[in-house]
Write a protein that binds this DNA or RNA. Structure first.
Lengths: 189, 189
DNA sequence: TTAAAACATTGACATTTGTCAATATTTAAT
DNA sequence: ATTAAATATTGACAAATGTCAATGTTTTAA
């Protein structure tokens, strides 16, 4: 499992990362089953997760307790509630596995260790943050102006893996439309 | 003008910032008039702006060339197209002043100088990035699930200054609703 | 100060999307 | 393998929002 993360890091920081193997010891490996929650809103988010395999859902509840999904993240990506992780304030979002998933978790102390052992690691946090930010900006700009049908087309074009792997219910919640509308419009594409 | 930025930085990094005055020399002061564009999509974003007074709009065009506004940022805040600024790739968003504005601009070289002169300054970029990220996450989670009326109420409660200062047209574009719907629902609140 | 332009409001109507309910299909657990 | 639960589809209808057009109001610039 660690090997996948190793490749991921090398592809970003280059081959010559000193102490990489020691650094990777800071990650704890865990397996989570489908529908297992790994963060509840109100708790402090203690870890940043690297997804080795599977898929995580980041979501909130609206006032009628419907879930709305801010993000769906698959293998070879990072996932966390970064705002809570960074500030140690209670999280405003929930995270759960929507597929059986293999994760590598690192806590703040681990991050600290890494920064000291591998100076370039400073960049990794910045990269994760920048990627997350870019993703959310993109999501706002893409979605505010699009109709339900256009959102579906967008997902098919740019996130085809999500479309084929996940339930309609989940996709609809990610697109911000009802299941019924999703079901109907899907047929029209 | 610089004095306001100085207070802003002191409030975040504390009183004892070494070389602060020299650091502030890296900022160029500029005045922009209403409707003046300071970044066009396709260009590389060269500056991060601190808004001393006024208001900036960050927006994109949809396929019918309507503007959709991702953010409206007022005085005492930072504004940039951070993804372009960080990567030096072409910007995907436009920025314009929607009020006559006084800005302090710093370029990458200036940022570099600051990091070297004031070690704590490293934090400032991270803080700007984190704040921007938190803001966009909040925007996604708040808006995806809200009706037009609820969005208006939200704006009145949490961004009352925007509501009173800016045109209905702009506010509607920020809320992702038509001007007419905004006009009608505003009366019902 | 005045004319032109931009913006805001309102009505009529069309379109999109949501809700509820019934049924079919798939998935999960024993 | 069988049954219960969850998910997906479809219809009928309601509610929300958008579009177009007409008019009134405010802002801007000469």
């Amino acid at each position: 499992m660690i090997e996948i993360l190793k490749q991921h890091i090398i592809s970003r920081l280059g081959e010559d990362v000193t102490n990489l193997n020691e650094v990777l010891q800071n990650f704890k490996s865990l397996k989570v089953s489908r529908n297992e929650t790994i963060l509840n809103q109100g708790e402090v988010c203690k870890y940043v997760y690297f997804i080795v395999s599977g898929c995580l859902q980041v979501y909130v509840y609206d006032k009628e307790f419907n879930e709305t999904t801010r993000d769906l993240i698959i293998e070879d990506n990072w996932c966390s509630e970064l705002i809570s992780f960074g500030s140690q304030q209670p999280a405003t979002e929930n995270i759960r596995a929507v597929e059986p998933s293999e994760l590598l978790a690192i806590d703040r102390q681990g991050f600290q260790n890494m920064m000291e052992t591998v100076p370039q690691f400073d960049k990794v946090y910045k990269q994760i943050l920048e990627a997350s930010y870019a993703n959310s900006v993109y999501r706002i700009n893409t979605f505010v102006a699009l109709t339900a049908l256009e959102r579906i087309k967008w997902l098919m074009d740019y996130r085809p893996k999500l479309m084929s792997r996940l339930s309609s219910k989940l996709i609809a919640s990610y697109l911000g439309i009802s299941q019924e509308t999703f079901s109907r419009l899907k047929a029209k594409v």
